[in-house]
Design a protein around this nucleic acid. Structure first.
Lengths: 188, 188
DNA sequence: ATTATAGGTGAACAATCGTTCACCAACAAG
DNA sequence: CTTGTTGGTGAACGATTGTTCACCTATAAT
């Protein structure tokens, strides 16, 4: 008896990191004819669950690497079965625009807790962005790297901690800003 | 003249969401023989940049959907060129374990600011986890959904806001907990 | 001058690819 | 009973797959 097609294909993609071939789908769904797969794929593609290449190869349509996003939960949670109408995103795509200039680093210290950035959080930083006033930046101060607000006034540039216990840092000579913080992620 | 192989292949994967075929690599690198690709792939695979299937198909090795992670930036930022030795992760894989039970929703209100969860943040929640004492949960209170700490004592269960201005919520009858917060992400 | 070695061409290989055809059983609608 | 429709089998198709072989340069080392 064939297992559920969608979840089987999704699981294949998740483990093999590529879409299965028609023969492979045939085997994993216990079909005995490739044509059965051909017709099944046609249906799934019409339903938007799959997409095909110009050469016929399968490519992952949404909801593969993606996670369902809920605008508001007022209406209650959808069950995993009725997973159709909600929007989905890929976290990587959502958070990272310029991949080559993007790094992740772990926050140490509590100098930004008022900005909701705690010790142990991961920050996604972009080195290709020119920092603006108010941006949270990674800067070098006294041969040490810290995360602070960047404040640009007409007369000067300085770093402001997101913690009232700490004082702003006014650079003596040069202020080296390494990257701009684009996102914060915290895992429990 | 052939362009740089690595970036070309990566770009192909990024746009087509699958690895190129030998012939396709041949065309995009302006080779005239598939064997040239065969040898090139062999080298890249030995260098760890590529991986091959048991059937010879290319599968994306790390650093495709992935982002470089820096344990500490004390040593300074690496340049995009010397991107070898650093560790990399995929944010989706890192943050989401049980994909079918995972949802993303946007935080409204300031009841968790002391926990570093601000209004507008996205929280990644898992519906398949049984909530423990101290977990941050999504719960239904008075036909409304809120995000709070869950406190379990021997005698009772209640919800504690992560904001000193608000009081704990003691459920009158039943306490409906919809999901456990696994991660928080914030984009600037 | 000779010898490797790395990197490319060009042709051939069996295997597998996606696709198409004819055919069949089950089932529901008329 | 007939008539579609749906979902499957089985065989065949040309095209493309990854791979291998022999051969051809360059450039560098001995």
């Amino acid at each position: 008896m064939p297992k559920d097609a969608k979840t089987s294909i999704r699981k294949f993609y998740q483990t093999n990191k590529r879409m299965p071939t028609y023969s492979e789908i045939m085997k994993m769904l216990c079909f005995k004819s490739k044509n059965a797969v051909f017709k099944l794929v046609k249906k799934l593609a019409a339903g938007g669950f799959l997409e095909k290449d110009e050469s016929g190869k399968l490519i992952p349509a949404r909801l593969y690497e993606q996670t369902r996003i809920l605008g508001s939960i007022q209406a209650g949670f959808p069950t995993p079965a009725e997973e159709e109408l909600v929007d989905t995103i890929s976290l990587d795509e959502y958070l990272i625009s310029n991949k080559d200039a993007t790094f992740i680093l772990k926050v140490s210290g509590d100098s930004m807790i008022d900005a909701g950035i705690l010790e142990g959080d991961l920050v996604i930083v972009d080195r290709s962005i020119t920092p603006k006033n108010g941006d949270i930046v990674i800067a070098e101060v006294d041969n040490d790297w810290t995360i602070k607000y960047l404040v640009k006034t007409k007369t000067q540039i300085y770093l402001k901690p997101g913690n009232k216990l700490y004082k702003p840092i006014y650079p003596e000579n040069e202020l080296k800003i390494a990257a701009v913080v684009k996102a914060v992620i915290r895992k429990y």
